[in-house]
């Protein structure tokens, strides 16, 4: 498994250096920056900082800008990870290398592990650029509990990775990337507490919020960055996140295994 992971990491690194996916890179950064910019405009110019009385109650902080900035940055990181991992197999199919890959007795988990670790080198850079931009517009790091923030970020990566496996098998099955992934992304932006606390949402949306790993990941991340809390304060969120990661990892791996076969048949039927 590790040999496969290492080889895949290496292979992707070479391809990335030879042809850097600039337009993906740029569009991920820009969409994060636009979210940040939009929040800043609304807060500063339209509402002049006057908040709803319930906000601090729902959000756990009074700092609207930092709240939304973190949301925007982690959301765009989630989108990048989901996209990169889930598209990898379908890209192999489109470029005609899927069969060559399936011919080998390599471990699929190793393949995805190599993919995700390589892609983190790129998505992490996107994430940091957005954070720096947000910092310039007033994101506060005063209270940050650094170690727990990093740990939560790491758990979030695992959560997004598992979700990406599931997304990848759905996309491979329908042989569609555009519709499936965008529908997921607009839904995530709506239900996961990216630009407003989920407390404002009507109750029937709650199950959807609950299904997104981004929801607990964001809550825990905000606890540690904005309120400076340790891991203990985010226990329930981390439990929630691990449960979702575990569930999606199982369902996603099974899904990939099944759809691989279906895809090979579809190519030849």
């Amino acid at each position: 498994m590790l040999q496969t992971a290492k080889a895949t990491f290496h292979r992707n690194m070479i391809s990335m250096i030879r042809a850097y996916p600039w337009s993906f890179f740029l569009s991920h950064i820009l969409s994060g920056i636009y979210t940040v910019l939009f929040a800043y405009f609304t807060y500063t110019y339209v509402f002049e900082g006057v908040l709803d009385s319930r906000f601090s109650n729902y959000a756990g902080t009074n700092d609207y800008l930092s709240y939304v900035f973190l949301g925007g940055a982690l959301f765009s990181f989630a989108v990048s990870t989901l996209m990169n991992v889930s598209r990898s197999l379908i890209t192999e199919q489109r470029e005609g290398t899927l069969e060559a890959l399936l011919l080998t007795p390599s471990s699929r988990k190793g393949y995805f592990l190599g993919n995700v670790t390589q892609q983190i080198t790129r998505t992490l850079l996107e994430f940091l650029i957005i954070l720096i931009f947000a910092f310039l517009l007033g994101l506060q790091f005063k209270h940050i509990h650094f170690l727990s923030a990093i740990f939560i970020w790491f758990c979030a990566v695992i959560g997004f990775f598992s979700q990406a496996l599931l997304l990848g098998s759905v996309m491979l099955y329908f042989r569609d990337t555009y519709i499936t992934q965008n529908t997921l992304f607009v839904t995530m932006a709506f239900v996961s507490g990216v630009t407003f606390p989920i407390g404002y949402l009507p109750e029937w949306v709650a199950p959807l919020s609950w299904m997104m790993p981004l929801t607990p990941a964001l809550e825990a991340f905000r606890h540690s960055v904005l309120e400076g809390q340790g891991l203990a304060a985010s226990g329930s969120q981390l439990l929630h996140l691990s449960f979702l990661s575990f569930l999606y990892l199982i369902v996603g791996s099974l899904g990939i295994k099944k759809t691989e076969k279906i895809v090979v048949e579809k190519i030849f039927s």
């Binding site: 339209v46 002049e48 709803d52 906000f55 932006a189 630009t195 404002y200």
Partner: peptide, 30 residues
């Protein structure tokens, strides 16, 4: 159906809710 109906409707609702954290009473700066 997705790009011209479902996504914009969800986007519209999201942006409506994005105003919720702000004061929306009669004295609001908006």
């Amino acid at each position: 159906y997705f790009s011209l109906l479902i996504w914009p409707v969800i986007g519209f609702i999201t942006s409506y809710y994005s105003f919720k954290p702000f004061s929306l009473n009669d004295n609001s700066p908006i």
